[in-house]
């Protein structure tokens, strides 16, 4: 059975013993991959991180919202099912979940499907999107459910009394306020999604941290490579935070939350 390449680290050794030689010019040198400069490698990694995180977030947001809603439905079965989903995905390390999707899932499918899956050209990418998406969905679900539970009980009663169906009640009354309330924690879950894409380097996804590692392995300029990746993550964080502030101001309800 084939084992897939994982990014593993050799002990840190440098060719010279005396201190570290900085070389920021490294980014403008051609990489041995022959597809561009070292800077291009970082940019490709950044692009992969953003695409993976964006798609994983779409899954996390949709599935997480659905599970969060289930958790707040009346009755016993729906909340129980939602809790099971949340506990399942919250109590295993993301890395282990990715291994389950990548190594175990294709094996437990009917043989033909498993082989088809393993031969997909973007297997690592798809695994990362689905694995991180489901992992984050449990966290989004917790936030969405807490947002709904933070609303006064009477809101649901009022919507029901007006003749709205449960689906309409969630769509027009409960969710618009719940999302507003949990916008700040959802923003940090979005940023966690970006950070978590780095875990997918273990299944060979060429995301930002993996590319920084590759730059380091080719060029031995370890600290320049990691500094570039670090700056990229900080910029992502800054931009996302600013976007969230803007969104919060935009959807703020006039007169709501006054003391």
């Amino acid at each position: 059975m084939p084992t897939r390449p994982t990014t593993r680290t050799r002990p840190a050794t440098t060719s010279n013993g005396v201190g570290y030689h900085w070389n920021w010019g490294i980014f403008w040198e051609m990489s041995p991959e022959g597809t561009g400069t070292y800077l291009d490698m970082i940019v490709q990694g950044l692009r992969m991180t953003l695409i993976t995180a964006a798609l994983a977030w779409v899954i996390a947001f949709i599935v997480g919202s659905a599970i969060g809603v289930l958790r707040t439905l009346p009755g016993r079965m729906a909340p129980l099912a939602a809790s099971a989903w949340i506990e399942l995905f919250r109590n295993m390390p993301l890395l282990v979940q990715l291994f389950l999707w990548y190594f175990v899932f294709p094996e437990i499918l009917p043989a033909a499907w498993g082989i088809w899956l393993k031969q997909l050209p973007a297997a690592a990418f798809l695994t990362a999107v689905i694995g991180i998406g489901f992992f984050m969905s449990a966290r989004v679900a917790v936030q969405v459910a807490s947002g709904i539970e933070a609303l006064p009980q009477g809101q649901r009663a009022a919507a029901t009394a007006l003749g709205l169906t449960p689906a309409q009640t969630y769509r027009y009354v409960l969710l618009p306020m719940a999302y507003r309330i949990v916008l700040p924690p959802l923003t940090s879950e979005l940023l966690n999604t970006v950070k978590n894409t780095s875990v997918a380097l273990t299944i060979g996804l060429a995301e930002l941290t993996a590319r920084a590692r590759a730059v380091q392995e080719f060029s031995f300029q370890v600290f320049e490579a990691f500094t570039a990746a670090t700056l990229a993550y900080l910029v992502i964080n800054l931009l996302a935070t600013m976007a969230a502030r803007w969104l919060e101001a935009r959807v703020r309800v006039p007169g709501y939350g006054r003391a």
């Binding site: 006064p152 809101q155 009022a158 009394a161 007006l162 003749g163 306020m177």
Partner: peptide
């Protein structure tokens, strides 16, 4: 029930207008 409730107006202690 939704149809029937639509024809029964209800006013609550805490108003329960939809704030957004």
């Amino acid at each position: 029930l939704p149809r029937l409730r639509a024809r029964v107006g209800m006013v609550f202690q805490h108003f329960e207008l939809f704030p957004h």
